[in-house]
């Protein structure tokens, strides 16, 4: 299970998964159910937006290798959120390695569906 694997990474505070339909979410870590629901709603919205953006980039530059979107990262002063496909992780900037977490997520989710259904 990827969420459990992510939680084993140094500095990962929480990890979660959401459905693109918006009707389901699961999580592990230092957040409560309300926060996990909010995180799922925000992550889903951001993923939808990235999906559209790389679609536009592809139309602009078909050979650029943008499409399909794999994920996104939001970096705050203390915490970072990494998202690949429909899985996210909350990181403590002081302890976690974004590179390691993104590497693990991209490896495990390499074959995730890209049509957001």
């Amino acid at each position: 299970m990827l969420l459990a694997e992510l939680m084993e990474q140094r500095g990962v505070l929480a990890a979660g998964e959401y459905s693109y339909r918006g009707d389901r979410y699961s999580f592990k870590g230092e957040i409560d159910d309300d926060m996990a629901r909010m995180a799922a709603i925000m992550s889903r919205a951001t993923s939808m937006s990235q999906h559209m953006q790389v679609g536009m980039l592809e139309q602009h530059c078909p050979d650029c290798g943008a499409n399909p979107a794999q994920g996104w990262i939001v970096r705050g002063p203390q915490f970072t959120v990494c998202n690949v496909a429909n899985v996210y992780a909350f990181l403590d900037n002081g302890k976690a390695s974004i590179n390691a977490v993104m590497g693990l997520m991209r490896e495990r989710l390499a074959n995730a569906p890209v049509d957001l259904v």
Partner: peptide
Amino acid sequence: QALAHFAHEYKRIVQGNADQLAM
């Protein structure tokens, strides 16, 4: 066709933003 595709994507983004606004 591109317009329909864009509108579909945009609809989902607006739905996501409305969800966040409500939340």
